[in-house]
């Protein structure tokens, strides 16, 4: 695929094509000149996926701020960790960046699986690339109409309800386990491979409830193929403003959101990081980016590298405790 490149070579190639001389001096160039050649943004998922879409929206705007192309490169595999471990192993010069989601940043590691890198020691966090809420939906024909009703029913009838997730240890699975433990109910977990077959079975009525991303569910909610119960974000979603949050449903303190971090190899010069952080925050303020984010159910975020690192630490604490309570770990 076009983006399976080896960076070193690709840089030389790209540089050769674009403007020979500049490239030769690029290696020795000062950080204040940064960037002098195209920047690669590695996405650990295939083109067209939700992470890829986020990366492309932001990369497009960052390129205009930085004055160099920001090329999105897809290196899919192993839940996004293949791409991020490539970034971790790249030179810390600010020309190879990565987009790291909840799974690659926290969950894979917290579930006791080897990702091939340690996010704290191998990567620098530049900023948060927006957050995305989840929504609890049910198949048509369920008697419960609200989240409290649903949880009451589940409490009275243990394991009568089935809930689907897009896989063991995915945010949707863990967020549902989190809710189960808060509500003190038992539902039967049915794992799927990704969102698509899960969506198929909720719409088809084969599984009772599921936690889906808001953009993935919005159209089906609008067509009344499925009924929404609550969104997992702290605030209501721009895509379905009528749907209450889980907190409104009486589960104090419950939030579960998806997000991506812009990361760079550890040791990237501070002024390069600052430039990247400014470009990212600039993009988050851009009216077109904000508009595109809204149609995709994404909430923009403006963070400094330090704030983003703190955000990662807070999220890690939360998900780790969810994993512990839910008892999902690799044996």
């Amino acid at each position: 695929m076009p983006s399976f490149h080896w960076n070193k070579i690709r840089r030389t190639l790209a540089a050769g094509v674009i403007g020979g001389l500049a490239a030769v001096s690029a290696g020795a160039a000062m950080a204040e000149d940064y960037p002098t050649r195209p920047i690669t943004m590695v996405v650990g998922f295939p083109p067209g996926g939700s992470t890829d879409v986020v990366a492309r929206i932001l990369a497009g705007h960052m390129a205009t701020t930085l004055g160099q192309p920001v090329l999105v490169e897809n290196r899919p595999g192993a839940g996004g960790t293949v791409g991020i471990s490539h970034v971790a192993a790249s030179a810390p010069d600010g020309y190879t960046l990565g987009v790291s989601g909840v799974g690659a940043s926290i969950l894979i590691d917290a579930l006791g699986r080897d990702s091939g890198y340690d996010i704290d020691n191998d990567l620098d966090v530049i900023g948060v690339m927006g957050t995305l809420g989840l929504v609890i939906v049910g198949r048509n024909g369920l008697e419960s109409q609200t989240l409290p009703e649903l949880m009451e029913y589940a409490k009275a009838n243990p394991e009568a309800l089935t809930y689907g997730s897009s896989g063991v240890g995915t945010p949707g699975h863990l967020a549902m386990e989190y809710l189960k433990s808060l509500a003190g109910v038992d539902m039967l977990h049915i794992p799927y491979k990704g969102n698509t077959p899960l969506l198929n079975d909720v719409v088809g009525g084969h599984v009772d409830i599921a936690m889906l991303t808001t953009p993935g569910a919005a159209e089906h909610v609008r067509a009344e193929n499925i009924q929404p119960f609550a969104v997992s974000s702290p605030d209501r979603s721009s895509l379905m403003p009528d749907v209450p949050t889980v907190i409104e449903g009486g589960f104090e303190g419950y939030t579960a959101t998806l997000w991506n971090l812009l990361v760079a190899p550890k040791g990237t010069p501070a002024d390069v990081q600052a430039k990247l952080s400014d470009a990212l925050n600039e993009a988050m303020k851009d009216i077109r980016v904000v508009g595109e984010f809204a149609t995709k159910g994404l909430a923009p975020t403006i963070t400094s590298p330090a704030e983003a690192t703190q955000f990662l630490a807070d999220e890690r604490t939360k998900w780790k405790s969810v994993i512990k309570t839910a008892g999902v770990t690799k044996k």
Binding site: P46, P47, G48, G49, D52, V53, R56, T196, L199, N200, V203, P215, A218, E219, H220, R222, A223, N225, E292, T295, K296
Partner: peptide
């Protein structure tokens, strides 16, 4: 709901163009 890997990419292309693929 895409039926195959290829179809998911086609849906992704729709999304990139600001069209939400869905029942409507």
């Amino acid at each position: 709901i895409p039926g195959s890997a290829t179809m998911s990419i086609m849906l992704g292309a729709l999304m990139i163009h600001g069209i939400s693929p869905g029942p409507l």
